[in-house]
C-alpha cells in the first residue's frame, strides 16, 4: 500500500466529500443496469423490496468506490484528472475513507441479505470484493488487461438485480453479466485512444501505453466481435422475443461498423480521432438502448402484447 502523510486537520470533513467518494456519476449507470436486471427478470417483486435491492446495489457500488479511492489515494495525487479528489487533496483523512468504505459495503450486504435474499447478498459481496480487492489492489497495477477485469465489476448490477427477483442463477443473468463484461473494453479503450491519461506516470499499465495503439485497436475489434453474439444470445436462447432480438442485431451491427474504421485507421475530415470518438459515444448509447430494449421486451411480454418464443 502507498503511504501518504495525511495532514492533521482540525476541520471536520464536509459531508459532501464523503458523498463525492462514492462516485455518484458511476453509480447512475450501476442503478440503471441494476433496475433493468430487476425489471427484466421473470416474476414479481414488492416495490419496497425492489427499491431496497437497488439501494443495496448502489450502496455496495459506493462502498467499493470509496475503498478504491482509499487504496489509490497516492496514485490519484499524481494524476491531473484525479488530483482534486477529496483524499489526494487532503480534505479527508485516509482512515475515515477506509472506515466509511467498509461501513457502506457491510451495510449494503446486510441490507440485501435481510430484506431481499442471501443469494443476492452473496453476489453483492462478491462484486465488492471483486472490485475493491481483486481489481483495485491486485490486478489493476499488474496487467494491461486491467480494463477487461474491471469490466467484471460493472457487470454485476443487472446480475444481482435479476437474482433479487428470481432467487436463482440461470443463463439470463449470466448473459447480462457477459454483455457488460464484453462491452467495457471497446468502450474504455476507444476513450483511451483519444484522451491521453497520465496513468503511465503513476505506473498503471494501460493497454495503449504498454502494448501500443495498434494492439489496442485490434483488441477493440476482438471484443466488439465477441460482444455481438453475446448481446443477441438472450433472444437466441428464448429468454426474450424478437423485439429485443432485432434491437440487439441492429445495435451490434452498428457497433461493428463503427469499430472497423478504428481498426483500419481510415482517416477522413479535420479530426483524425473522429472514429474513436464516434465509437466511444455510440458505445454509451448501445448499452442504454440494449438494456432499455430488454426491459421493453419483458414489459410487452408480461402484458401479453408479444409471445414468449424466438419469433413470436
Amino acid at each position: 500500500m502507498n503511504t501518504i502523510v495525511t495532514t492533521t486537520n482540525i476541520m471536520p470533513a464536509d459531508w459532501r466529500d464523503f458523498f463525492t467518494l462514492t462516485k455518484p456519476r458511476v453509480m447512475t449507470l450501476v442503478i440503471f443496469t441494476g433496475i433493468c436486471g430487476l425489471l427484466a427478470a421473470p416474476g414479481t417483486i414488492h416495490p419496497v423490496i425492489g427499491f431496497t435491492a437497488i439501494l443495496a446495489i448502489a450502496l455496495g457500488a459506493g462502498g467499493s468506490a470509496v475503498l478504491n479511492q482509499w487504496w489509490e489515494a497516492d496514485l490519484d495525487k499524481g494524476m491531473k484528472r484525479t488530483a482534486s479528489r477529496p483524499l489526494p487533496d487532503g480534505r479527508l483523512r485516509r482512515e475515515d475513507a477506509r472506515d466509511f468504505g467498509i461501513f457502506l459495503s457491510a451495510v449494503s450486504v446486510g441490507l440485501m441479505g435481510v430484506a431481499v435474499g442471501w443469494l443476492a447478498a452473496i453476489s453483492l459481496f462478491a462484486a465488492i470484493i471483486y472490485y475493491a480487492v481483486i481489481y483495485t489492489m491486485w490486478l489493476k497495477p499488474r496487467t494491461p488487461q486491467n480494463i477487461v477485469i474491471g469490466g467484471g465489476a460493472g457487470a454485476f448490477p443487472p446480475f444481482i438485480g435479476w437474482i433479487a427477483v428470481t432467487g436463482e442463477i440461470t443463463a439470463m443473468p449470466i448473459l447480462l453479466f457477459a454483455i457488460i463484461f464484453m462491452w467495457t473494453p471497446p468502450h474504455f479503450w476507444a476513450l483511451a485512444l483519444f484522451v491521453k491519461s497520465d496513468y503511465a506516470k503513476v505506473g498503471i499499465p494501460m493497454l495503449p501505453v504498454v502494448a501500443g495503439e495498434r494492439a489496442t485497436r485490434q483488441q477493440i475489434m476482438i471484443y466488439t466481435v465477441l460482444l455481438a453474439p453475446i448481446a443477441i444470445a438472450p433472444w437466441l436462447i428464448g429468454g426474450t422475443s424478437w423485439v429485443y432480438g432485432s434491437v440487439a442485431v441492429v445495435l451490434s451491427a452498428l457497433f461493428l461498423m463503427l469499430a472497423v474504421p478504428v481498426l483500419s485507421e481510415e482517416r477522413q475530415g479535420a479530426d483524425p480521432l473522429q472514429p474513436e470518438k464516434r465509437l466511444f459515444k455510440f458505445s454509451i448509447v448501445y448499452l442504454f438502448a440494449l438494456f432499455a430494449a430488454l426491459v421493453a421486451d419483458r414489459v410487452l411480454f408480461a402484458n401479453g402484447l408479444i409471445g414468449g418464443g424466438v419469433f413470436a
Binding site: 414488492h46 419496497v48 423490496i49 431496497t52 439501494l55 435481510v114 430484506a115
Partner: peptide, 10 residues
C-alpha cells in the same frame, strides 16, 4: 422508515 416498510412488505 425503510425497515418499517420492509417489515410490512415481508
Amino acid at each position: 422508515v425503510l425497515f418499517y416498510l420492509i417489515t410490512i412488505a415481508r
